[in-house]
Write a protein that binds this DNA or RNA. Structure first.
Lengths: 246, 246
DNA sequence: GAGTTCCAAATGGTACGACAATTAAATAGA
DNA sequence: TCTATTTAATTGTCGTACCATTTGGAACTC
């Protein structure tokens, strides 16, 4: 049980790249489990003494660890840097950032997404429990109900679409698929918006989500895949239409 | 052509979370293309004036951007923060960190790779030209020849394995598959090493690569997929064996 | 003129000190 | 007992000075 004043094996930081050094030592301590998630590191001033350096160096190192998603920093008394449970979100943001900086052909993205979506669907049917499947179906139902109420809030629909995708990815019980799916949703949800901008595609897409989730809940993999195929056919059509009009 | 003294749209940082604010503004400027890769940001002292804040805040923001892989920092005259070309390495490391901290089962990674490998193979057969296919086959042949010469250099074999995977991914003509494959190869090739450490698995794996590339060159997708399946069955067996002995 | 050496400027890296802002806990008061 | 206030601990910010490294030019030597 590492407390705030514990003597972790921190050695004085080397000159020139002290910030790097400090960050690496603390990261190693976290990865070695010397500090458990939920516990806090010593205060910046304590760390400054342990590393025999300036407070600015410690702050830079903390900033780096925070960016990596390793710690969470709280202000005030009893504040400090608390070791965080690893979240797939950080890794996803990193991938999304990379994808954003490259301008990638939307068709390539659709192709890729369809590929992993099919696998995810198969895995979700095989591995997730009945409750999850019904929850997924209910969420698709909820999206459909929003539509009939004459409330075509595009932002809300797109958000629900993202959540359905991520929820489904989680049901695959494989964190790597979650990684990819979240990254795609973070970086390229704008392409999906076109599906919900047009009344026809909006109606078809929502109905397709209902069909897909229904087949998943019914443990019908082939029919679910067929429905997935329809989804991406719609998306490609929609992108094609948009390209022609622009 | 943004020069070091250009007036980018930076507004004074808000108190309380100035570091965040600065980092976000600069990141937005980079993502909007206001600063092109290779160009440099203003010096820390200039930025301090533009944001009307302290230099420590700027340094923390820079550290965050550096951690995200957005900039590269050089010391000395004509030094500063230079916008970097996006690298897949960062996303890879981020995922590796997550998987390590959460102690994710290697089988998840194998499952994921098999999934996209199958799609890549189909696409490669459909889209790549005959020359590429023959080149791929030749490279597998070369690996086999290394084996018969009684020169079991594990590092070389693993490297050739990586190259075969990336080459195949490139033949899919979809850059996303290529990036994902690179990310996986960068961060997690260590698992594959076990295939080449054991004489039996080494022999089988190399023979399997020959078979796979041969079927790809022959435009036989189903047989190629069958061979791919064999590859991952071997990998799972190998991991299982390793787990039992440890 | 060519090459070398040396120095000065620019820039990131470090250290230190002071104060502000925020938060949890202790304390005083009703 | 409950509430309001104070207090202490901690992060967040600012400023200054100085060190280390790199570049480029100036001065010097051959």
């Amino acid at each position: 049980m590492s407390d705030r004043t514990d003597d972790l094996g921190f050695s004085p930081a080397k000159m020139g790249r002290a910030g790097e050094d400090v960050a690496l030592q603390i990261e190693a301590a976290i990865l070695d489990g010397k500090i458990q998630p939920g516990e806090s590191l010593p205060s910046e001033r304590d760390l400054r003494d342990q590393f025999q350096t300036g407070r600015g160096v410690i702050r830079e190192a903390m900033r780096a660890l925070k960016e990596k998603g390793l710690v969470e920093i709280r202000k005030g008394a009893k504040g400090g840097a608390f070791v965080k449970e690893a979240e797939v979100k950080n890794a996803s943001e990193s991938l999304a950032l990379f994808l954003k900086q490259r301008d990638v052909d939307p068709c390539c993205l659709v192709e890729f997404r369809e590929s992993i979506d099919r696998t995810i669907t198969i895995l979700a049917i095989a591995r997730s429990d009945e409750a999850s499947k019904r929850q997924l179906e209910a969420n698709a139902e909820k999206m459909a109900s929003l539509l009939v109420n004459g409330d075509p809030d595009m932002a809300t629909l797109a958000e629900m679409d993202r959540e359905l995708n991520i929820q489904l990815a989680g049901m695959s019980k494989n964190p790597i698929f979650q990684w990819i799916m979240q990254a795609i949703q973070l970086g390229f949800s704008s392409h999906d918006d076109c599906l919900y901008a047009d009344p026809y595609f909006r109606k078809e897409t929502v109905a397709n989500w209902q069909e897909t989730t229904r087949q998943i809940a019914a443990n019908e993999p082939m029919r679910a895949l067929s429905s997935i195929g329809r989804h991406y056919a719609l998306l490609l059509d929609c992108l094609q239409t948009r390209k022609e009009t622009s």
